[in-house]
């Protein structure tokens, strides 16, 4: 089932086009990554999905229902963790979550249970009576997530949730994204940190200047650029080396020996590193260093747009 369907979405601010005829579908159970540099239109798209901005053209459907005509249904099924923290510093952690869950119509014991569940999920149950002003950046982020998930939405949107926080909190958040996904939530995750997107997302759209320029799993995206990888092995001596024997290894395309460096070009999707190393060990050739160069999403972005993700 399509949790989210976007058709020909366009948003203009004056004559500036922030989102340009964008079409996307996100299926149930995906962790969908929006990868793009600052100002690519990620947040604008998310604000339109959340109903905070109105589009100029196109339509957005949540669980098959148009958000323009069924905005209440859409809002009830979305949880949004905005880029800028949306919590009240003068309310306790518990009160913050209760407030936001209350906005979604939860009442009574159900409200209490859900608030505690959400706080427990983000690991803040023991801090529920504390004020967020005394929290670290990471804890505030986690509280922000608790506010967004207490009403158990089908679709959770996280807009750059790891900006400006410590590595521990970052890992905690990435793990909780995975957990939410295992519990049946579909997640939209935007970031300009390529590593995060590559780590957790099942499908990724590369966005630039308001357009989706490429979309697919990370393997598919990398395959746009190349389907080979380079393995460079620096050896002590190449006396007993036989190029043809390395070529026999599954997946290897070409072998070049330049002085002490053996340059192997291999198909990217075949995992043959073990076999290659095994070859050198069997021949008693000492490996001094080994370098594998496979494309990552950063190279994909750089190659397609000519710019870096972070300027």
């Amino acid at each position: 089932m399509n949790v989210l369907e976007i058709n020909n979405l366009t948003k203009k601010f004056g004559d500036f086009i922030a989102v340009d005829n964008m079409s996307l579908t996100i299926k149930e159970g995906e962790i969908f990554g929006f990868l793009g540099s600052n100002g690519a239109g990620k947040s604008t798209t998310i604000n339109m999905i959340a109903g905070l901005l109105r589009s100029n053209e196109g339509e957005i459907k949540i669980l098959g229902k148009n958000i323009a005509s069924q905005s209440k249904f859409a809002k009830r099924n979305i949880g949004i963790v905005p880029q800028d923290l949306a919590i009240y510093e003068d309310l306790t952690a518990y009160e913050n979550v209760r407030f936001f869950a209350g906005l979604y119509g939860l009442r009574g014991t159900e409200l209490k249970d859900r608030v505690e569940e959400a706080l427990k999920f983000v690991g803040l149950l023991d801090k529920q009576k504390s004020l967020p002003k005394n929290f670290s950046g990471g804890m505030k982020r986690r509280l922000n997530i608790a506010c967004a998930i207490a009403h158990k939405p089908k679709l959770i949107i996280m807009d750059e949730p790891t900006v400006g926080i410590d590595p521990q909190s970052r890992n905690y958040i990435l793990n909780s994204v995975r957990q939410l996904n295992e519990m049946g939530c579909t997640v939209i995750y935007t970031s300009h940190y390529m590593e995060e997107v590559e780590e957790i997302c099942t499908r990724i759209a590369i966005v630039d200047h308001g357009k989706v320029i490429a979309e697919g799993t990370k393997e598919q995206l990398k395959a746009i650029i190349t389907d080979t990888k380079d393995i460079w092995v620096d050896v002590k001596s190449n006396d007993s080396l036989e190029e043809s024997a390395i070529k026999e290894i599954n997946g290897v395309n070409t072998v070049q020996v330049e002085e002490n460096v053996v340059k192997i070009n291999s198909q990217a999707e075949v995992s043959n590193l073990n076999k290659i190393i095994q070859y050198f060990i069997n021949r008693n050739i000492e490996i001094r260093s080994l370098k594998e160069q496979a494309p990552n999403l950063e190279t994909v972005f750089l190659t397609l747009t000519g710019r870096n993700l972070r300027d």
Partner: peptide, 16 residues
């Protein structure tokens, strides 16, 4: 295909 138009560093038009 897609066309990316970028004006941040000089002006570039990329056809993919």
């Amino acid at each position: 295909g897609t066309v990316i138009v970028d004006g941040t560093n000089g002006f570039s038009v990329t056809t993919l």
